[in-house]
Simulated assay, not measured.
Amino acid sequence: MSDIMERNYAQMKSYIERNKFPFAEKEEQGCKRLDVQHGKAKCAVKVYTTGTIQLQGVDSKLKQSLDEAKNAVENEEDLGEVLPFEIEQFPEVLTENIPNIDPIIVRFVAEAIVSLKAGSNLGCAFLLGGASEKAFFLLVDTYAKAIPDETMKGRFTSRTSGKFISKVYDEFKNSWKSSLNKPTGYGWTNDIEIKIEQIFQFCRICRNEAGHPHLPPNLDKGVLLANMGQFVKYVEDLYAMIGFYEANDVQF
């Protein structure tokens, strides 16, 4: 077996393992084969002695992801530049998991992924921050409407309307902590930092760095990817709170 075959095969296998795709290995005449599966999608990856990589299977998101990896390997590019399959799927996952999600959030997340693939870390950070702020402002608006006492509602609204996002978050957090009823389940009985604040603050700070020229941007792609990996769960948690306050009044 040739060195180029072994090298290309090892890189494709590493990419498949990194994305946690179930797979099986076998050897065929003149090639080594990986049978890969993700949900109902299946794809065969064949690596020949010349180093050529061939994909077999019907068109699917899985095949598209493997095709990007194939092109990177064959062109001797850094396979690390190919985004994890999980992140590529975020727009579809958000729409599936949150049927009533605001389309602006999905559009911003999709554009953030496009920007990251194009090497625009600043563009990705700005768009991800926009998606985060849209989801958070929807929560604040729903929370305000759920305050039954008109005087208290007016005070909360006056403290959050037209303010910087950091100020709005602080006001919401203080009001939420003083409320008596909260969503039930893991995490909600503890501080809000567990489910919301970490990703919210990351997205806010990154958006500030990308959107304000006087701040020196220092956005590492690895850091963006690590936090994007948690973004779907973050938006799901925000929408869980939105759903709770659509069905329940805020109690003090």
Rank of each mutant, 00 (worst) to 15 (best):
S2A: 10
A10S: 12
M12D: 03
S14T: 09
S14F: 13
Y15L: 05
I16M: 02
K20Y: 05
K20Q: 09
F23L: 04
E25Y: 07
K26H: 11
K26L: 05
K26V: 02
G30R: 14
L34F: 13
K40C: 04
K42M: 12
V45Y: 07
K46F: 02
V47H: 00
V47Q: 00
Y48H: 11
G51Y: 08
Q56Y: 08
Q64C: 02
S65G: 07
E68A: 08
N71A: 11
V73D: 05
N75I: 00
P84F: 03
E92K: 04
T95N: 13
I98C: 14
V106E: 11
V114A: 07
V114Q: 15
S115V: 11
S132G: 11
F137N: 15
L138A: 13
V140H: 04
K145T: 09
A146Q: 09
A146M: 01
P148N: 14
E150M: 04
G154Q: 14
S158M: 09
S158L: 03
G162F: 03
I165Q: 04
K167Q: 10
V168F: 01
V168W: 02
E171H: 14
E171Y: 09
W176I: 03
K177L: 15
T184M: 00
Y186T: 06
G187V: 11
D191T: 06
Q198W: 00
Q201R: 15
I205P: 01
A210N: 13
G211N: 06
L215K: 06
N218S: 03
L219K: 15
G222E: 01
G229M: 05
Q230A: 01
D237A: 12
D237M: 13
L238N: 11
L238V: 15
Y239Q: 05
Y239M: 12
I242S: 13
G243P: 07
A247I: 00
V250L: 08
Q251W: 04
